[in-house]
Amino acid sequence: MKKVFVISILKWILLFFILFFFLFPIYWLVITAFKPSQDWFSWPPIIIPRQLTFENFTGQSRGFEGSLSSSIENIVPYLRNSLIIALITSAICTIISSLAAYSIARFKTGGRRLASWIVSIRMLPPIATVLPVYLLFKNLRILDTWLAVILVHLVFTIPFSTWVLISFFNGIPKELDEAAYIDGASVWKTFIYLIFPLSAPGVAAMATLSFIMSWGEFLIALILTSSVKSQTLPIFLGRYITGFRIAWGPLAAAGLVIMIPVIIFSFAMQRYLLRGLTFGAVKY
């Protein structure tokens, strides 16, 4: 009995420690977003805020020395760019990778090798491919556009989604397709009305993961974009960080703005996300 008690105490301590470890930086980010500028840097650090303000979001009367901007009032166009890029990436990625995965799963297109090739293809770090892609886009005159960023983000999301969806489609009995064909349905109809809905969880899960990936991506967006026309939120953050000091208030406020759409997206998809990953990624 005593042993059971000790183990359960240990479990609670472990849980508490994990929670604290993960929660504290987030808590800090949230309170900093509402702190007035004199509280951003202080010793001892202010853990329980004394005074809350919306200045970091809406702009403040006095400027803040050493940074380009003292609030996130200019975030809207970047938010627009990010939303468009992440949503389109997510949508196109699911379409292209489910088509590819279905083709590989049903017709063994390219054989087993193609499937493992798809996974291993991403092992070359992006740094080696970023420059040729930059030059290519420069010649195509699509630098600093949504299209450029979307295209490269697709390259990063498609392999993983395809791989997961292949095993997902393998889980749907072939007889179902056959039955639809015998009933006279075309390939498209079978795919859209039968296969797609049946695999909705997997597709939703991949949509979520590619949305999150595209939303947070930094290096590609940094190199391919150069103006407010197409720069995404992670690039927008750079303006609060100068060699001199970091404008913590607006940086944290922008962080909140960046996190909220992802939270909404993943909670909307949560039910599917768990079930989808399950189905797709596991084969017996």
């Binding site: 993960f22 930086p25 999150i212 947070g216 930094f218 992670p234 962080g255 992802v262």
Partner: peptide, 9 residues
């Protein structure tokens, strides 16, 4: 939340 927090931040 820790995962979706922008890496830069």
């Amino acid at each position: 939340l820790a995962w979706i927090n922008p890496t830069l931040i």
